[in-house]
Simulated assay, not measured.
Amino acid sequence: MSFTINDFTGADTQVKFTLDDAIAGAGKVQFKVDYLSTGKNTLADIRGVFFNILDNTLLSGLQVSGKDITASKFGPAGEVETVGSSNNNLNGNGKNGQNLFDAGVEIGQEGIADGKGDIQSTIFTLSHTSKALTLAQFSQQSFGVRLMSVGSATSREDSSKLKGTAPYYVPSPPPPAKVPEPTTTVALGLFALGGLKVAKKKTQAPASITVS
């Protein structure tokens, strides 16, 4: 499942999400979050990722893992607008309205000096202590991202808050059953017929011999 979200306040920015429930293993969903260069804003530091989940009863058992994760918050449902540091938030009434989520994940640390952050792409895995997660849990759900240090190689003074909605998820149909080619079917039939004739010969009683 791939989709992009756009800024509702701050600098002109765009972020791409790619969710996969096969790469990370059964019952897990991998999140790949990439900043997309937009106009003059070629660089940005991803600081927070926010999202909703279809079944809110799963929030208490969610777990997240990834090398860039520094904090996480799961629930209360529809009340999460900040995670980690206080300014790592999506508060405010932008053009998309109130920005509250079910969960939030903090990425890296604030600031790009001294190697603290400057993360333009990150990957983390979401799992549950007792339930299997699939992409269906994120179908048509809201997603958000907090960006800091937005700009170019010469100036990184802007910031941005983004929000968008994942597309409707349609599971892939199972692969069709393989049907043998006609020539293969004929060959299998002849092989079976030949085997049957051999079996009959082996079980046939020997002819009797009369001695005078």
Score class of each variant (00 low, 15 high):
Ala11Pro: 11
Ala11Leu: 10
Asp12Glu: 12
Asp12Leu: 14
Thr13Cys: 15
Thr13Tyr: 08
Thr13Lys: 09
Gln14Val: 12
Gln14Tyr: 03
Gln14Ile: 06
Gln14Ala: 14
Val15Leu: 10
Lys16Phe: 02
Phe17Thr: 04
Thr18Met: 07
Asp20Asn: 15
Asp21Phe: 02
Ala24Ser: 13
Ala24Ile: 03
Lys28Tyr: 00
Val29Leu: 00
Val29His: 01
Gln30Tyr: 00
Gln30Asn: 00
Phe31Thr: 01
Phe31Lys: 01
Phe31Cys: 01
Lys32His: 08
Val33Cys: 02
Val33Trp: 03
Asp34Tyr: 01
Asp34Ala: 14
Tyr35His: 14
Tyr35Ala: 03
Leu36Gly: 04
Leu36Ser: 02
Leu36Ala: 01
Leu36Trp: 03
Ser37Tyr: 03
Ser37Ile: 02
Thr38Glu: 10
Gly39Met: 09
Gly39Gln: 08
Gly39Leu: 10
Lys40Leu: 11
Lys40Cys: 00
Asn41Gly: 07
Asn41Gln: 08
Asn41Asp: 12
Thr42Asp: 05
Thr42Val: 11
Thr42Met: 06
Thr42Ile: 05
Leu43Thr: 12
Leu43Tyr: 11
Ala44Val: 05
Ala44Arg: 05
Asp45Glu: 06
Asp45Ser: 04
Arg47Thr: 07
Gly48Glu: 00
Gly48Pro: 02
Val49Tyr: 00
Val49Trp: 01
Phe50Gly: 00
Phe51Leu: 04
Phe51His: 02
Phe51Thr: 01
Asn52Leu: 05
Ile53Asn: 02
Ile53Val: 13
Leu54Glu: 13
Asp55Leu: 04
Asn56Lys: 15
Thr57Glu: 13
Leu59Trp: 09
Leu59Asp: 08
Ser60Ile: 12
Ser60Pro: 05
Gly61Ala: 10
Gly61Glu: 08
Leu62Trp: 09
Gln63Ala: 13
Val64Glu: 07
Ser65Thr: 15
Ser65Leu: 06
Gly66Ser: 10
Gly66Leu: 10
Gly66Asn: 05
Gly66Thr: 10
Asp68His: 13
Asp68Leu: 04
Asp68Ala: 12
Ile69Lys: 14
Ile69Met: 12
Ala71Phe: 06
Ser72Leu: 02
Lys73Met: 12
Phe74Glu: 06
Gly75Leu: 07
Gly75Met: 08
Pro76Phe: 01
Ala77Tyr: 08
Gly78Ile: 12
Gly78Pro: 04
Glu79His: 10
Val80His: 07
Val80Asn: 03
Glu81Asp: 15
Glu81Met: 10
Thr82Val: 11
Val83Glu: 01
Val83Arg: 00
Gly84Pro: 02
Gly84Cys: 03
Gly84Ser: 03
Ser85Cys: 02
Ser86Asn: 11
Ser86Trp: 09
Ser86Leu: 09
Asn87Leu: 12
Asn87Trp: 15
Asn88Ala: 08
Asn88Tyr: 08
Asn89Cys: 09
Asn89Lys: 12
Asn89Ala: 14
Leu90Gln: 10
Leu90Ala: 13
Leu90Asn: 10
Asn91Pro: 00
Gly92Gln: 11
Gly92Trp: 11
Asn93Leu: 15
Gly94Asp: 09
Gly94Cys: 12
Gly94Lys: 11
Gly94Val: 11
Lys95Gln: 12
Gln98Glu: 14
Gln98Leu: 14
Asn99His: 15
Asn99Met: 07
Phe101Arg: 04
Phe101Trp: 09
Asp102Ile: 01
Asp102Ala: 08
